[in-house]
Design a protein around this nucleic acid. Structure first.
Length: 420
RNA sequence: GCCGGGGUGGGGUAGUGGCAUCCUUGGGGACUGUGGAUCCCUUGACCCGGGUUCGAUUCCCGGUCCCGGCCCCA
């Protein structure tokens, strides 16, 4: 037997009902914020991703040569594709440009809880502006997606890369050393940074300042411990705008430094504390396209949500309930009622109900059992006596209550019942 | 890449160096139209490869996959 590849999953109908429900809630949030959906290819020239994220990521990508000897990669993320799409076809669109996407991504990693080799992301990019209210808008959308999905327990942390970046560039004149220092900060490798400070005889005071800034976490008032600068003012404005949106439980976290050569300003992460080691469900920030592909600077802010982790976090809070897979299951009581049953099920379907009918010529008893296990809300029993009066017996599978209704009224009766 | 714990029918399990247990699910039948029952029949499993052995599902080694963690996380 051929096994499913490591780190991939099959999703059955019950699971997909939950996934689609959650995904749809997040799409709705994007639409409410005026974002339009885009779809980009599942594979791209691998260069697209190495340009954005560096050569080192090749190890963790699914890279292959196609029959034309082009080096391709299954997308490890979708932002790069959206940027490519924007530059090639949408750069003349009115700004701001609001785009979102949903899709599968691939990374060659070791699977564990909330980490798969094929996983699903929903993300949004707001292109063409860099105001604090732009960043706030994106954070607000991120929160709306999670709230819309039903998630309650999560923590939003917002930082600003410019604070550490400008400090290092200002205080360390040697550009090579400064870049090296930033790389270590990016990895949060404080030991190596300290060693380098010793080796290069850089001031200990600066090292302490860097680590203390990276340590700033908590309410927005923590910013008062820093000297005012453009980045701190920007951060404050983001928090102010979020408050106007009714969002006041975000934290400042200047320790968010990952992706330093990519992000340029505000960065943010959202964790679901109930998850284990892999508790980050969302990450994002602002960046400039020009630094990736050259050309005119275009400012953007975006984020990506790990849909799989949102699902996991949701189910740790409470079961995800979905609509019954079937509204009605039509059962002929006897064989000579079968033909009549098809007319009934066809009418129910044309009324937009999820309706099914016995295809296995089973007995009434076995059909009732099937209707129950198939999750039907109602059994529509078609019998001789009812048929004579152009009616059916409608059985509520939850309560067991039955009533005789006119054939024309079945759909209406079901739609009137609770849970419709 | 590394570490730990696991793989017995579709799901859940028992167990053993020699016939693989039970429950559930699936399919069929009986039962004159409510039996979502009951009874009967039936499909279906020891992850893969090598070793030890007369004989391995069981013991040993390797692999693979799953679960969790480290590293990493664009």
């Amino acid at each position: 037997m051929i096994q499913r590849p490591r780190g991939t999953r099959d999703f059955g109908p019950a699971e997909m009902a939950k996934r689609r429900k959650v995904e749809q809630a997040m799409r709705d949030a994007c639409a409410r914020f005026g974002f339009g959906e885009v779809v980009t290819p599942t594979f791209e020239h691998s260069e697209l991703f190495t340009l954005r994220s560096g050569q080192s990521i090749v190890d963790e990508m699914y890279v292959f040569r196609d029959k034309g000897d082009r080096e391709m990669a299954l997308r490890p993320e979708i932002t790069a594709s959206v940027i490519r799409f924007y530059i090639s076809d949408m750069s003349m669109h009115p700004k701001p440009l609001k785009l979102f996407y949903v899709g599968n991504c691939f990374r060659y990693e070791n699977p564990q809880s909330g980490r798969y080799r094929e996983f699903f992301q929903l993300g949004a990019e707001l292109i063409g502006t860099k105001t604090p209210e732009t960043d706030a808008e994106v954070v607000a959308l991120a929160i709306s997606c999670l709230r819309g999905a039903g998630l309650e327990d999560f923590l939003v942390r917002i930082g600003h890369i410019g604070i550490l970046k400008s400090l290092v560039r200002k205080e360390i004149k040697d550009e090579v050393v400064a870049a090296e220092a930033l790389r270590m900060i990016d990895k949060e490798d404080w030991d190596s940074l300290g060693d380098m400070f010793d080796a290069k005889a850089l001031p200990r005071k600066l090292f302490d300042k860097i680590t203390s800034i990276a340590d700033i976490k908590g309410s927005v008032d923590e910013l008062n411990n820093l000297e005012d600068s453009e980045p701190t003012a920007h951060l404050r404005e983001i928090f102010d705008t979020l408050r106007l949106y009714g969002i006041d439980d975000c934290q400042v976290d200047l320790g968010i430094v990952r992706g330093l050569d990519y992000y340029t300003g505000m960065v943010f992460e959202i964790d679901a504390p109930r998850l284990g080691a892999e508790k980050q469900v969302l990450g994002g920030g602002s960046y400039t396209l020009s630094e990736l592909f050259g050309g005119e600077p275009v400012f953007s802010t975006g984020f990506a949500i790990g849909i799989d982790r949102v699902l996991l976090a949701l189910e740790k809070e409470r079961p995800i309930d979905v609509r019954a897979p079937l509204d009605a299951y039509v059962i002929p009581a006897k064989d000579d009622m079968r033909k009549y049953a098809f007319g009934i099920v066809a009418r129910l379907r044309s009324q937009g109900l999820k309706a099914d009918v016995d295809l296995m010529r089973r007995t009434l008893s076995k059909n009732l059992k099937y209707a129950f296990s198939a999750g039907a809300r109602f059994a529509v029993i078609v019998g001789k006596e009812e048929m004579a009066k152009r009616s059916v017996t409608l059985r509520d599978m939850k309560t067991g209550k039955q009533e005789v209704v006119q054939a024309d009224e079945i759909g209406k009766t079901i739609l009137r019942s609770p849970d419709s």
